[in-house]
Design a protein around this nucleic acid. Structure first.
Length: 587
RNA sequence: GUCUCCGUAGCUCAGUUGGAUAGAGCACAAGUUUCCUAAACUUGGGGCCGCAGGUUCAAUUCCUGCCGGAGACGCCA
C-alpha cells in the first residue's frame, strides 16, 4: 500500500504542479514541530528561491489549492514559508484502519528481485573470534535482512580468511614444536590421521605468540612466508593440516554465529577461488593489464585525476605468493560468473578503503566486473577503548566474542531470577530468555550507532538492560504479547478507528515506519531502524502507562486500543527482525 | 609529507535533499505501583554543535583555512 507520506506528497505535489512548479517540491515530511502540526512541506521556500519569488507568496498559492481538501483540519503557513498540515481524525483514522490489515506494515517493496551479494563476517581460520568481529557480522547480516525484506534476492557470504600469512605462521610453528609429526614428513605418501591434532585453545596460544615473534625476527617471518607459499602450492602435509584448521575453526564460528543469530548463505573463503587465480592472471597478462613491476605482477589502477598516490594492485608478490587483493579480484570473477549480481556490498573495516578502491578499479578496468555492477565498500568504524585506541581488555588482550555473550547471558539470568513474571519457568526456558536478552543487548548497543564512525566499546553498556537498549524493546514487546493474551485479542477487519487524545501520538508513530525503512534501505543504515524501534516502543509505553486498556468500558474503544497495540507489536517484531534480534514470549 | 574520516550536554551517541525552539540514553535531582510485566512511567537542571571566515532569506549540515583525534599510503590482512 502507498504510505501516507507518499499520498500527502502526491496531493501537495499536485498543487505545485497546477502552478507550473515541479511536483517534487511538494515533498511532505513529518513535522519537526508536533506542537504546530502533524506534517510539513518545505518546498515553497526552495521553489521560491528557484523562481526568485517570495516564499510566503508561493506558499499562499499552494495552500489555496489545498483548502478544498476535506482531509485537512488545519493548513497554515509559518515562519519564512513552511506549509504546516494537520489531518482530520477521520482521515488519520481511515489510513490507520487500512494499515491494520497490511502484513508488511505499510512498507513497499523497492527491489525487483535483483541479486545483491554481501560480504561480511570475515572471520579468520585458526583465530578465535573476538569482539572486533561483532560489527562486520551483525551490520552485514542486518543489511542483508533489510534488503531481502525490500524485495532483493540477497546472498550473504562469510568470506573467511583462510589462505593468508597467519596460516603460514601456524603451520611453521607447529613444525617447530612437533617436527616429528607425519604432516611434516615430505616423503610420507599415506593418509593423514583423522583425529584433530590441534584445538582452538592451541590457536589462541600460538597465533599471538608467533605473530609477535615475526614482527621482531625477520628469519622467523621468512619461515612463515615460505610455509604460506608451500601451502598455496598444496604441499600434501601442510594442506592436510590446514584442512584440520578449517574444520576446527568452522565449528567454533558456527557456534558464535548461531548464538548471534547471524546468517550466511555461503560459507566460502579465499581458498575457494585459488584455482581461478592462475588463469585469471594469465588472461590479464595476455590482455596487457597485469604487468611485471619490481619483481611482482601488478595491475596499475592509478587514474589521471587522482589527487593522491595510488598504489597498484599486486596480484603476485615477488616470492610468488598471492595477496588478499588477488583473491578478492578472483572472487568478483567467481561471483559474476555464478550469480551475476547487480551489486556486491563489502561490510569490512573502513581502514581497508584504499584496498577496496584498488580492487574495484582493477575489476572495472579489466572487465572482470561488468560496467553496471555496483561495487560498494561499507566501511565500518573501529571499536575503540575508553582511551580512544583500538579496544583491548584490561589485561591487554582481546575479548573473545563468546566470553562477552556469556557475560551478558549470566547477567540476564540474574535478572530473570528476580523477576515475578518468570516464576515457574523451567531452567531451559530461563536460559533461552537470558540468551535472547543478552544478544538483544549486544546487537542493539552496536547497531544503534551509525556504522561508519568509530565508537567507544564499553562492556557495561553492551550488557545493559535499561534505557535505550535491546532488552527494553523486548520488554515492551513482551508486555504487548501478554496484554493481547489476557484480553483474548482477535483481529477485527475493517475496524473504524477514530483517534483520540490518548492514542493520537501512537498512531502518528505507527505511520512513520515506511519512511524509516526506506531510509535504511537507501543508505544501508540499520541504526535508523533501531532508533525508530525505540521511539515506537517508548511512545507505546507512555500510552500504555496513561491508558488502562483492560478496564475500558466501551468495547469498541477497547478493541481499537488492542488493535493499535497489536500493530505496535507487529512493527517491533519487523524492526527487530531486520536487525536480527529475537523476541521471547516472556521475560 | 599526501590523502581520508571524525570533533554535538559530564559520558556514549542520533540529527535524513541546508529549515522553525539542536534530540536520546546513561549519570545527577524529584516524583509514580490496592490497576494490563517498575527491564517501566512522569518532571527537572544541564549546549559558543572544535575555532575563524565565506555562500544563503536560513548553516550542526555546503565551501576555505586553522586547531585537536583516528586512520590509510607497493609485496600483512
Amino acid at each position: 500500500m502507498t504510505s501516507l507520506i507518499a499520498q500527502l506528497s502526491d496531493i501537495v505535489g499536485q498543487a505545485f504542479g497546477d502552478e507550473g512548479i515541479d511536483k517534487s517540491f511538494g515533498l511532505v515530511r513529518f513535522s519537526d514541530r508536533p506542537d504546530l502540526a502533524q506534517f510539513q512541506c518545505n518546498g515553497a521556500m526552495a521553489a521560491a528561491k528557484a523562481a526568485k519569488k517570495n516564499p510566503r507568496t508561493v506558499a499562499e498559492t499552494i495552500i489555496q489549492k489545498l483548502q478544498s481538501n476535506p482531509d485537512f483540519s488545519k493548513i497554515e503557513i509559518a515562519g519564512p514559508g513552511f506549509i504546516n498540515l494537520t489531518l482530520t481524525d477521520e482521515a488519520l483514522g481511515k489510513y490507520i484502519s487500512l494499515l491494520t490489515s497490511d502484513d508488511r506494515c505499510g512498507v513497499e517493496q523497492v527491489g525487483h528481485n535483483e541479486t545483491i551479494m554481501l560480504d561480511y563476517g570475515g572471520p579468520n581460520v585458526a583465530k578465535p573470534m573476538h569482539v572486533g568481529h561483532l560489527r562486520s557480522s551483525i551490520i552485514g547480516d542486518s543489511i542483508r535482512r533489510i534488503l531481502q525484506f525490500s524485495g532483493y534476492n540477497t546472498v550473504g557470504d562469510i568470506h573467511m580468511g583462510d589462505w593468508g600469512t597467519q596460516m603460514g605462521m601456524m603451520i611453521s610453528e607447529l613444525e617447530i614444536m612437533h617436527p616429528d609429526w607425519v604432516y611434516f614428513d615430505e616423503n610420507y605418501t599415506g593418509d593423514y590421521p583423522i583425529d584433530p591434532v590441534v584445538t582452538m585453545e592451541d590457536f589462541e596460544e600460538i597465533y599471538p605468540r608467533v605473530s609477535a615473534l615475526c614482527k621482531t625476527d625477520p628469519e622467523r617471518l621468512e619461515r612463515s612466508k615460505k610455509a604460506v607459499v608451500d601451502l598455496q602450492s598444496k604441499r600434501r602435509g601442510y594442506y592436510a593440516l590446514w584442512q584440520q584448521f578449517v574444520a576446527i575453526s568452522l565449528h567454533s564460528m558456527k557456534r558464535n554465529f548461531t548464538a548471534l543469530n547471524v546468517h550466511f548463505d555461503l560459507w566460502k573463503g579465499e581458498t575457494d577461488v585459488h584455482d581461478l587465480i592462475a588463469p585469471m592472471v594469465e588472461d590479464l597478462q595476455k590482455r596487457g593489464y597485469a604487468i611485471e613491476d619490481e619483481g611482482a605482477i601488478v595491475v596499475h589502477v592509478k587514474k589521471n585525476d587522482d589527487n593522491k598516490e595510488f598504489p597498484p594492485l599486486i596480484l603476485y608478490k615477488s616470492d610468488g605468493g598471492v595477496l588478499y587483493g588477488t583473491t578478492d579480484l578472483a572472487t568478483i570473477f567467481e561471483r559474476v560468473r555464478d550469480y551475476n549480481p547487480a551489486r556486491i556490498l563489502y561490510v569490512v573495516d573502513k581502514r581497508q578503503g584504499l584496498h577496496f578502491e584498488q580492487v574495484f578499479r582493477a575489476a572495472k578496468l579489466t572487465g572482470i566486473a561488468p560496467e553496471q555492477l555496483e561495487l560498494t565498500h561499507l566501511g565500518y568504524g573501529t571499536m575503540n577503548g575508553q582511551d580512544g585506541k583500538p579496544f583491548k581488555t584490561r589485561a591487554g588482550g582481546v575479548l573473545k566474542l563468546e566470553d562477552m555473550i556469556s557475560m551478558g547471558q549470566e547477567k540476564a539470568l540474574q535478572r530473570i531470577e528476580e523477576a515475578e513474571a518468570a516464576k515457574g519457568l523451567s531452567r531451559d526456558e530461563k536460559d533461552d530468555i537470558a540468551m535472547k536478552v543478552a544478544i538483544a543487548a549486544i546487537k542493539f548497543a552496536d547497531l544503534q550507532n551509525s556504522f561508519s564512525a568509530d565508537y567507544v566499546f564499553d562492556l557495561d553498556r553492551m550488557t545493559s538492560f535499561e534505557g535505550k537498549t535491546g532488552p527494553y524493546l523486548l520488554y515492551q514487546s513482551v508486555r504487548i504479547k501478554s496484554l493481547l493474551e489476557k484480553a483474548d485479542y482477535k483481529t477485527q477487519k475493517n475496524l473504524e478507528i477514530i483517534p483520540t487524545d490518548a492514542d493520537r501520538n501512537l498512531i502518528l508513530a505507527l505511520i512513520e515506519l515506511p519512511q524509516v525503512v526506506d531510509v535504511a534501505v537507501r543508505n544501508y543504515t540499520p541504526h535508523v531502524l533501531c532508533d525508530h524501534a525505540y521511539k515506537l516502543a517508548q511512545t507505546f509505553s507512555s500510552f500504555y502507562g496513561n491508558t488502562h486498556i483492560m478496564s475500558e468500558s466501551d468495547p469498541a474503544q477497547r478493541q481499537i486500543w488492542l488493535e493499535l497495540s497489536h500493530m505496535v507489536l507487529m512493527q517491533l517484531e519487523l524492526l527487530l527482525d531486520l536487525v536480527g534480534i529475537k523476541i521471547p514470549e516472556r521475560m
